[in-house]
Design a protein around this nucleic acid. Sequence first.
DNA 1: CTCTGGAAGGAAAACGTTTCAAATATAAAT
DNA 2: ATTTATATTTGAAACGTTTTCCTTCCAGAG
Lengths: 347, 347
Amino acid sequence: MDESKPGRVAPTRATISDVARQAGVSIGTVSRVLNKARNVKPALQRRVLDAAAALDYRPDSFAQGMRSKKTHVIGVIVPDLRNPLSSEAAAGVEEELTQQGYSFFLANSRYERGREENILNEFARRRVDGIIAILARDQDPRTVEQLRRLPMPVVLLEREIGTEFDAVRTDQVQGTYRATRYLAALGHRRIALITVPTDNMSGRYRFQGYAEALADVGTEVSADLVHMGGYTRDYAVNAAYSVLSMRNKPTALIVSGGMLPGVLDAMRQLNLSIPDELSLVVLGDTELAALTRPGITAIRYDWAQTGRVAARLTISRIGGSETPPERVIVPYEFILRESCQELAPGD
Amino acid sequence: MDESKPGRVAPTRATISDVARQAGVSIGTVSRVLNKARNVKPALQRRVLDAAAALDYRPDSFAQGMRSKKTHVIGVIVPDLRNPLSSEAAAGVEEELTQQGYSFFLANSRYERGREENILNEFARRRVDGIIAILARDQDPRTVEQLRRLPMPVVLLEREIGTEFDAVRTDQVQGTYRATRYLAALGHRRIALITVPTDNMSGRYRFQGYAEALADVGTEVSADLVHMGGYTRDYAVNAAYSVLSMRNKPTALIVSGGMLPGVLDAMRQLNLSIPDELSLVVLGDTELAALTRPGITAIRYDWAQTGRVAARLTISRIGGSETPPERVIVPYEFILRESCQELAPGD
DNA sequence: CTCTGGAAGGAAAACGTTTCAAATATAAAT
DNA sequence: ATTTATATTTGAAACGTTTTCCTTCCAGAG
């Protein structure tokens, strides 16, 4: 019925046979011209190209995918769309993929394993050429098993599973080590840590850097200063609240970027000021850290860069690269602001 | 060669004919069971379902799309992945689409028309079932024409083109009106406005609300107080810098959320304090506005909600809804913080 | 002039679904 | 027991590509 509507252009797209007819050749020839263009006389080639242009022909990606098994689509799975890690990484992936002619599905697991499983299944069903994943948990054997079964290359972002998958990550160990040593150099010894659980790489490596730095200055990790039990803002608020209202409270605090809002919130409630009453370093720089007053000293991670690297790596795997799994580590940057203070000897 | 590797599961997925063979029925029956399941005897239905489960069968989405013309994919195009409007809207869209069994392509135009055009073409080629778009410019005739030609429903987000497309947007007119009136009620008359250009809806409606409010308090718009020439952070810094270093500088400033960082940056450079030297209202609430000190009074827009509504609307259009184009307006919320001060009579 | 071999182009198969027409089985009505 | 209507199931076409296998051309060699 639409066909007859006067004002409406018929919505039927030209197919390859339309082009073939218009150019007076077989569809096979059209396909050959449009793809490799081998063994076709220049004259014919022109005719085909002209016909295709005239008809505004675009190959149907479903027919292509059906036949050639290549979709030029990559699946990207993140745990929390609103977290800067996710959005920055997605932005980096986007930059690189677009440039290389790929599209991508974006999916959000919300840190739920069930969702993650469904998403991976859906990606497989949709025959994505590759997957870039920031997993909720990288130690769950079911997840690992599912990844192993996937017929397309998988690149992990900010996560690690043994050495069998490509992985791109920021240097959380060194970054956190540096943050801790920086505070220690200012005289702090009671340094609290609020970040994500150890069931993914970020938490594990952050704790490792923290613990190593403390050990190097001859201090032991004190369990009551470490809160690594959740991902949410509420968790951060509660953790900060409880650690900052201890009788013998810490003089410094290291918090991950996604939890900074919660910590600032708690500090406001407790009416604690930075840096007089608490020195603060954030793992992962954000606009909030940069622009709040005083500015928060930060370990900056270039997540967009990890995204770009992961995208390039994925594409090279799709291209058939068979080298052993890579492990790329993107360095951190230390951003000095005004949130830390030398500890007065008496404190 | 992979087939023979001992440790590797053969990566060939089961097809519908495998299921048919296993269940001892025709492929047509399998298809019917898996889709509508009408007119199939319960016994057979069980057999088919069991077979499908046993083989871990998942219909190939390319074959499906090829035949049925439905892809269950929606294309989402945003102008700036790092802007809260984009990421919040994407998150809202994601919530709703996932729940309804849709996947989505996410693409980033970076406010460039050429990219936008390519993205729309790519979406068409990939036969997305519908498109949700935050356009770079909603007044460009070429963009409009391209949208008209698209064979799938398009829902505009935070943009409007006449009345021929569905559009979901926040109430920028009223929000900005309210912000302006609020400042006026505190005695301010020299109120600056820094936001995006008028070549998309947000800029137009913000200016409208601003101008109406000023008119209602008997003040004229003063061109040197209005900066609506760019989208970037750099633009915001420069605009704020120039407007705040005027001899007769404004006593209050309204800025859009994406540009708040730039404004705060400029204020820091100029060493201006809030609210003593400048009252500030931000259009679009963000974490930065909420957590910086003092907190910035904000007009909050629920972009995630617009995303959800747009997703629902898109799906209903895909379902064949033929009602006239809708125009949904999501209300604003006034968030009072500490960034505004009553103007002293002498000022 | 015939033969050979490579280049160029065509015809048709295949990809895995959905859907439609036809065939068969079942139930109801006579 | 037939006939008729209805419910179920089958078989095959169709979707728009890519690709494989042929056939046809031609040029150069013998």
